[in-house]
Structures are given as C-alpha cells and as structure tokens.
C-alpha cells in the first residue's frame, strides 16, 4: 500500500483533514472518502467536464488533479452551491429553464457556469458557449443551459 499524505482542504466551507494516497485523484477523494458524489466520473481524461469542481476560484477537471495537489486549497463542489437549503440562483435558473434532462452532466455544468459568472458577470452567448465547451451534455440541453446562465446574469443585474 502506498504511503499516504495528510492534506488539509476546505470543502464547501468546511475544513477537512484527510489521509490520501498519492495516486488518488481529487475526484476519487471527493466521491469515495468525502462521499460528495455530485462530481461525476465519466471520461477520466479531462474531456467531458462531468467531474468539474472549483479549486481556489478556478474550475478544474477533478479527475486530472491528484488529491494531494489540492492540499491547502479551497474546494467548492455542487453540494456547496445551495446555501441554508435554498438553491443558488444558478441552480434555480437551471431548473426553471429545463436545463437538466438526465442530469448527469449538470453538476459539472453548474460549476463551470458558476466560475464563468464569477469572472464575467455578463457573458455573451458566445462566451457562455466557449466557457462551457468543456462540459459535454449528450442530452443536448446546451441551449437551455446557455439560457440559464443568461437568466442568472440578468437576475444578478436586477439585484
């Protein structure tokens, strides 16, 4: 068995101390150790985006990040979007626009969209499509996902 490393991470606002073997990815640790199964496992080569989480403010494919690399980082997963049981505006917009069909890609889409809006509160359609191109949706809900991001951006302006 491989030597493990002690890492300290903050996941969805909660500090966590974990023992991880070096070859386990952040996705493995989120899903198997922390039981946060919102981030999904699909391609494992950084192509599909189903495992997208936010590390220190930036989206990553968590299948390509070793958990030990995340030591000291702040991590946000889809489970961290809703606050006190009420949906984040982006989640609400995904629901209202019908962006989730089978739903499997949606946690990744949400994290990518969340980070996009944090950096660019008023993206154009082209910017959304480019910003979310790393998140495949085989149901083909791309237009609804784009609409949800646009609606969230507009909502943000009104508030």
């Amino acid at each position: 068995m491989a030597e493990t490393h002690r890492i300290e991470v903050t996941v969805n606002g909660l500090p966590r101390m974990l023992e991880v073997p070096p070859h386990h990815t952040l996705l493995d640790v989120l899903r198997d150790d922390l039981r946060l199964t919102g981030a999904k496992e699909c391609c494992l080569v950084g192509e599909c985006g189903a495992c997208t989480v936010i590390v220190d403010g930036r989206t990553v494919d968590s299948c390509l990040v070793l958990a030990v690399e995340a030591d000291g980082c702040e991590i946000t997963t889809v489970e961290g979007l809703a606050q006190d049981g009420s949906l984040d505006p982006l989640q609400r917009a995904f629901l209202d626009e019908g962006a989730a069909q089978c739903g499997f890609c949606i946690p990744g889409q949400l994290m990518a969209a969340h980070a996009l809006l944090a950096g660019n509160p008023h993206p154009t359609v082209a910017e959304i499509q480019e910003g979310l191109a790393g998140n495949l949706c085989r149901c083909g809900s791309y237009l609804q996902i784009t609409d949800a991001v646009l609606a969230t951006a507009a909502e943000g302006t009104r508030r």
């Binding site: 950084g46 192509e47 985006g49 997208t52 930036r58 989206t59 990553v60 494919d61 390509l64 990040v65 990518a112 980070a115 996009l116 480019e130 910003g131 191109a133 790393g134 998140n135």
Partner: peptide
C-alpha cells in the same frame, strides 16, 4: 489549449 478547466491547470 483544451477547455477552460484544462487551461486552468
């Protein structure tokens, strides 16, 4: 290079 997620790493 790749997607946003890839370019972030």
């Amino acid at each position: 290079v790749g997607s946003v997620q890839i370019r972030n790493r």
